[in-house]
Design a protein around this nucleic acid. Structure first.
Lengths: 207, 207
DNA sequence: ACTACTTGCAACATCGGTGTTGCATGTCAT
DNA sequence: ATGACATGCAACACCGATGTTGCAAGTAGT
């Protein structure tokens, strides 16, 4: 309704002043940082975290919803990018799997809140991107299956969900700027081999 | 402060009328049902879902917090029970692992909201129970490791977190009253074997 | 039947968060 | 230096949720 809301909706209306754009960035980053540990944080808290007044936040984002949507869209785009640059459709399955994992972990450790929110719907663009990524993931798994990397008898969607869960878990660990490559190795290793010992007499003895 | 709050705090103060106790049950179950899909549900919504007036809910539970705590405690106790009856310290590791998984899944599919909430702190009893269960879990894994069921070189805490994540994922699937045993089989299988094909020439070919 | 308890309903006070506005001050761009 | 824009601050209206109370009607237990 108001002038600000218009500004939020059509983003590149007119060139913003240099400092203003910086402020927007600052607000978004601070919001992510705070919301990651407290999803119910107040606009006041977000503003303080960004070092600005609450009214300033409202000048850039008409509503709280608008702010969250901006975050969501941003994260979704980074997500798609992380997956895309790993060439999941072209590279050899194992290589692609590893690359995708590492890239996504890098994004997810810094944008955990926005990423999780993107998983829900509400934001159409984010929902679309997520659906596409999911499809890409299953597709990659199918290729892996055909290459003999994944067992032929497994449920690909269950596998995908497990994969997502592993990444989610690894992302928690690496929240403090951990090594994405090391985490990716662990994730892929766990996904492929699990935690059990190779089948043999030993397992029989355990029962 | 008020009479109701006292009643909530010391539960078995005096024998409640038969129907009253039934009402409390109904409210808790309805609350779980609603909160599972909408954690921010209103007291009004919870009341309507239970088929009672909002004021009635407030008569049984002084505050929204009190209601949630009751749910949390309940779920935590059921959780501890589910783990305990599987004899995780005595039964053979693989058997115990399967039993624990199936039991926990049965509880978690019906009390997903309260269980997740119990994972956070706030409720001291729930926090204690969860810590104990975690310890039990690691202990079980250690036994499994010694029995040769789990590889000797893995990180037990990472394995536990993966295990939790798998259960969480399986619980989503079985929300509509799925077969806990079947899900447990899948969870244990995934945890032990992962999704990869047994090592061999094939994997080399994939790179 | 009688009492004690519980319920629904309507109304109320309160509180915290959101979104808005006006104004004085400050900063950017030219 | 000057005009345009951004900011902080204070104040305000508004809304929805929470928690409380009084009362009339209904139900459990004896």
């Amino acid at each position: 309704m108001t002038a600000q809301k218009q500004q939020t909706e059509q983003q590149a209306k007119r060139p913003l002043r240099a400092d203003t754009e910086r402020t927007v960035q600052t607000i978004l980053e601070a919001a992510e940082r705070v919301l990651a540990t407290n999803p119910a944080a107040t606009m006041e808290q977000l503003a303080r975290a960004a070092g600005v007044a609450r009214t300033t936040v409202h000048r850039r984002f008409a509503t709280r919803e608008a702010l969250l949507d901006e975050l969501t869209g941003w994260a979704a785009r980074q997500f798609a990018d992380a997956v895309g640059t790993a060439r999941p459709d072209a590279a050899p399955p194992l290589v692609a799997l590893y690359q995708v994992t590492a890239n996504v972990l890098r994004v997810k450790t810094d944008w955990s809140f926005a990423m999780n929110r993107a998983a829900e719907d509400a934001h159409p663009e984010a929902a679309r991107i997520h659906a596409e990524v999911r499809a890409t993931c299953v597709q990659l798994f199918r290729r892996a299956q055909e290459a003999g990397v994944l067992r032929p008898d497994i449920d690909l969607d269950w596998t995908r969900r497990v994969y997502y869960a592993l990444i989610h878990e690894a992302a928690k660990e690496g929240a403090g700027g951990g090594d994405a490559d090391a985490l990716a190795t662990r994730v892929v290793d766990t996904l492929l081999r699990g935690a059990g010992a190779p089948a043999g007499l030993v397992r029989q003895a355990a029962i």
